[in-house]
Every structure is written in C-alpha cells, then in structure tokens.
C-alpha cells in the first residue's frame, strides 16, 4: 500500500556492510515514503540493526548510498542526520543514566536546535522556558511517562527506558523514526498502547516510521508495508499480509531459526 504520490523520504541503495568476515548487510535497497510506516523484519542476525546504524550514520557502509529527503547523506555525522529529522530508538539501550526522564526530553529538545549554549549557561540564562516545559510535558504525556518524569532513568526498568528513548526521539519532531525493537521489555498491554501511539503519530504528524520488531502482531498493527531481510539481504518487500505469506519469508523465519 505504498502511497503513490507521497515523496520519498528515505532511499537506501546498494547498501553493504561487513564486519571482518561477516557480511551483515549485502546490497540492500528499499525506500520509505514520507508519512509511511514500514516494518523491517527478519530473523536474528539478519542485519536490521546494521541497516539502522548505516542510515543514522553510526556506521559507515562499505558500499551504497543513503538518501534522506532526496539528499545523499554521504559522510554526514550522526548528529547532523538527527537534526535533519531522523529520530531513533535503540535495541541495546542508549539512555543517559544520570539524567531524569524529563531531562532526557529537555536535552533532546535543546540539542535539536543546535549547540552554542555556553554563554547562556555562564550568564545563568539556561533555565527551562515555559515553551520548553509545555513541549516536554506534552511528549511525556503522549508516551505515558508523566508520572516518572523526575526519576533518574538508572532507577527505571527496561521497558520504561525504551519509552524514554522514544520520547527523547519524538520531542525533536522527526520526519523519520527508526524504532529498533521498541516493544521488548513491555508487556502485552503496553505493547498495544505503543503500537497505537506509533500509528497515531504517523497519522497525525505525518511521521514516517521504520519499525524493527520481532513481535509480528505489533508490526501488523502499525505498518502498511513490510521489508523482510535474511542474512543481510532483502528477501521480500510489499504489503504486510502479502509478504508474510511468501514462501521465502516462511523459509527465512522457520528454516533458519
């Protein structure tokens, strides 16, 4: 169900990356339209996280190109890509243990606008503004973290930390969200709530979502389209239900695991 007419926001072409002898990603190509929500699924070790890392600039691909909004990203560092509108959550938690939940969102909101705050700090003019309080409160409410806003994340559980990462990514109003297994650590109820939230954001904000998830039920609830990877290659790309019916996909899921 690719919306014809919507401009492409992310284009990945001929992407390849290997670690020593292991080819993690091999000639991967796909695209995501603005406002579209796409599932990137595949068995463990298929290369999904590696694709994410290449898209957000954490890894340099050995070959291939990533274009965001029609612009080749080349060697652009991660932070520049983030400021362009690529938000991300991580499979292995990347939270800031010393900061509270609120500070996570606040620091993300400010970082999004760029650095150069030193002189403001030194003049004591970096207190939170009313506008910032509003935005941060809104995001926390959206993700459902309002009640733990002032708790340092070191004291929170895994599932909550995933939501913190999500809130931190959302506050910058990304145009593309890369979510890497956001539901692991959440219970069934919370997973459903999260799926609903991602869907809502996609519809309301027109945010494109690229979702890596092992919980295919959740993927089905969020995405229009699915890309299946196996052993570093894309083996299927199409409407979620169609793709799941393909023999290659069944082979990848049932045969390898």
């Amino acid at each position: 169900m690719t919306e014809r007419g919507a401009p492409t926001i992310l284009e990945v072409e001929g992407l390849a990356k290997s670690f020593g002898g292991v080819t993690a990603v091999d000639d991967v190509r796909f695209s995501v339209a603005a406002g579209e929500s796409v599932g990137l699924v595949g068995p463990n070790g298929a290369g999904k996280t590696t694709v994410f890392n290449c898209v957000c600039g954490q890894l340099r691909p050995d070959a291939g190109e990533v274009r965001f909004d029609g612009r080749p990203l080349g060697d652009l560092p991660t932070y520049r890509r983030a400021r362009m509108g690529i938000g991300r959550t991580y499979q292995r938690l990347e939270v800031f243990p010393e900061l509270t939940v609120r500070d996570h969102v606040l620091v993300a909101a400010r970082a999004h606008l760029g650095g150069g705050h030193l002189w403001k700090d030194l003049l004591g003019r970096s207190a939170t503004t009313a506008e910032e309080r509003r935005v941060v409160g809104e995001v926390l409410g959206l993700v459902g973290l309002g009640h733990v806003a002032d708790v340092p994340v070191a004291a929170l559980g895994l599932g909550t930390c995933r939501l913190v990462e999500l809130a931190r990514a959302l506050v910058a109003e990304p145009r593309l969200l890369l979510a890497d297994e956001p539901s692991s650590g959440l219970d069934a109820h919370e997973t459903r709530a999260l799926a609903a939230l991602l869907h809502q954001l996609q519809v309301e904000r027109g945010m494109a979502v690229l979702l890596v998830e092992h919980d295919l039920g959740m993927v089905g609830a969020v995405v229009d389209r699915a890309i299946v990877m196996d052993l570093g290659r894309v083996v299927a790309d199409g409407a979620f239900a169609d793709v799941m019916a393909e023999p290659e996909v069944r082979q990848a899921y049932l045969g390898v695991r």
Partner: peptide, 14 residues
C-alpha cells in the same frame, strides 16, 4: 551528562 551516559544516544538526538 548525556554524553557521559551514552555517546551513541547523545549523537542520536543531535
């Protein structure tokens, strides 16, 4: 403080 916690996460938020 964010950087001390996670360089990857810090870069990811810009």
């Amino acid at each position: 403080a964010a950087l001390r916690g996670s360089e990857v996460g810090a870069a990811g938020i810009g």
